[in-house]
Write a protein that binds this DNA or RNA. Structure first.
Lengths: 343, 343
DNA sequence: CTGAAAGCGCTAACAT
DNA sequence: ATGTTAGCGCTTTCAG
């Protein structure tokens, strides 16, 4: 029935058992500088025998940095964001920091809550992929945040927060132009979640290119699942002016249409060509292989993390290039589905 | 040049500005029980105006729980583990806890370091997917851990740690038997990383079934990339007794062989059948569609997290079913590549 | 090279 | 209903 404070031994317990002061133990666990080799060895032995581990909370409470950064993304199961997370974590680790991943489902409410969690934990900074670039709620919160923040994949408008994004506009432009150069005249642009920054940019790139070629825009932003893709495809093909090419603006949309095209027996690219945004594992393997716009996914995560640490470590730089927006380049990977390669 | 302690306001600053004691503020931020509505409102206004956020480190230092759990996995970019993580995080959130994801590349050293990080942060418990079920180093460390631990996907041998795994042995058995029932006589079993628990179990399941059918085992565990798959396939086909069916024990192996079969123009399933372990997005879409053994991925993550919380919340149960090993069932999804469906 | 002591920001008795 | 106060476990002057 002894009063067992905690199941963990403390620094002063180590000190007592080793017959030294707490300062000495503190020095030992922090590198062992300015400690007599004899004492050092003895203290280490006690630490070992007690299984002592310094309490991070106490260290944080004392010090100024927590060596923790946040990573707030829609989903951790999404290959795009999990690859970003992996890259960011590598950078965090190189800076001896812990990366805390928080997911939001693109809901502002969850984003605000996540930021609050990070604030309470006194994260040294964080990376955020906001679902809505214009949310007033989030903007108000971020305005008050004292630590460095970097947005990923999607910027936040009207706030001096640096962003690391890929070149969505010109990626879509590139893709559209490529289809035009193939000679396609009726190029449909398909996607879901049209309110996302990335989608708006890509749609704008498509539109710009279509208009300057004097073609007609065919836009459907209601693709949520296989069913809606199949329905959209059937409708378009049954209409008076069926498309001769499909530009799908996100991974899942590309896959839904690939499946629908196959199911309906539409020959690709002869009857309808297909060009997708975002590469995926089997894109080169399926028949026909699918041409895509490829984003530098790992580089996005890595760059965002590097930028964040640069700002955390250098307050001056933070003031300087405040609203920096880093655009990483996308590239077109031509395969068979756009007509570039013989079957 | 004022001594700005920290950029964050503290509880006592709030107290002073609101003209109340620290206890009152503490009560307010903890639900506002036993506080006069008037005072409560005033304090809340001050909190709002100061942008005060309680310092988590201080709360942790005081209290017994950190409301933090760890999730130690090989990689966060691996779809299997990121899906598990997503499911586990949902459970953690339901328990108002933070999930900290740490990655190890299946390296014992990184696993030990991750566990140490969690110990320093005084995580209330953690979930671990060890790369090596027999590592003495890890075992020694875990032996000393005072908080609940649950292993995921791969158990740790010789230690009373509960494990949540899928039924690898009988999954592979099921798959092998299915191929046998199709009439295939020379069934090759292919994979990489044969030291992983899951692979050993699956190989054992394959072996058991092959032997009881009186067939010959054909095992190649050296498949690391597309190149090795293509090489293995060419060798086998050029040999005196080529296989008539392929059982691939992991996702990447399945894909490598699918690509190699296609590249070499081998007709599936007529000349060689293919059955893979683990489902994947395009398995039903590629031609031929690929038959697979499907694991309950989200359920694994969810169950592991639920089991962990159960143990964290109930010390008695912890003692009771100590070495519980929960096996979740896999199922066979027959598609075209094994011969189940006409092309 | 080493130790005593003062907090870091918060919670929880214990008073009032 | 509210304030006072003693730590939680650690780091860090400041003295020896």
């Amino acid at each position: 029935m002894t009063k067992k404070k905690s199941k963990h031994p403390t620094l002063s317990e180590v000190a007592k058992k080793a017959g030294v002061g707490t300062t000495t133990v503190s020095r030992v666990i922090n590198g062992g500088q300015r400690v007599d080799p004899q004492t050092l060895a003895r203290v280490q032995r006690v630490i070992e025998s007690l299984g002592y581990m310094p309490n991070q909370a106490a260290r944080i409470l004392k010090g100024d940095r927590t060596r923790t950064i946040g990573f707030v993304i829609p989903s951790i199961a999404d290959p795009f964001f999990s690859s970003c997370a992996e890259a960011a974590q590598a950078i965090a680790r190189a800076h001896e920091s812990l990366l805390i991943v928080l997911t939001t489902q693109n809901e502002v409410h969850a984003e605000v809550e996540s930021v609050n969690v990070l604030l309470r934990h006194r994260a040294d900074g964080f990376i955020l992929a906001p679902g809505n670039s214009q949310s007033q709620l989030l903007r108000n919160l971020l305005k008050r945040v004292q630590v460095p923040v970097v947005t990923l994949d999607r910027p936040i408008e009207g706030l001096p927060i640096p962003a690391v994004v890929s070149d969505n506009f010109s990626g879509a432009q590139l893709a559209t132009r490529h289809l035009i150069e193939h000679g396609y005249k009726r190029i449909a642009c398909l996607t879901g979640e049209p309110t996302l920054y990335t989608m708006r940019e890509r749609i704008a790139g498509y539109q710009k290119e279509i208009e300057s070629a004097g073609l007609e825009m065919i836009l459907d932003t209601s693709i949520k699942d296989y069913r809606s893709a199949e329905y959209a495809l059937e409708s378009m093909l049954a209409g008076p002016n069926p498309p001769d090419a499909l530009l799908t603006l996100k991974n899942s949309t590309t896959i839904f249409f690939f499946e629908a095209l196959q199911k309906l027996g539409v020959v690709v690219p002869e009857r309808v060509a297909l060009l997708g945004y975002d590469d995926f594992e089997l894109a080169a393997t399926v028949r026909p292989s699918i041409s895509v716009v490829q984003q530098p996914i790992e580089a996005l995560g890595r760059t965002a993390a590097e930028l964040l640490f640069a700002r955390m470590l250098d307050g001056a730089a933070t003031e300087k290039n405040k609203a920096a927006i880093v655009q990483l380049h996308t590239r077109l990977i031509p395969r068979a589905s756009c007509g570039c390669r013989p079957q």
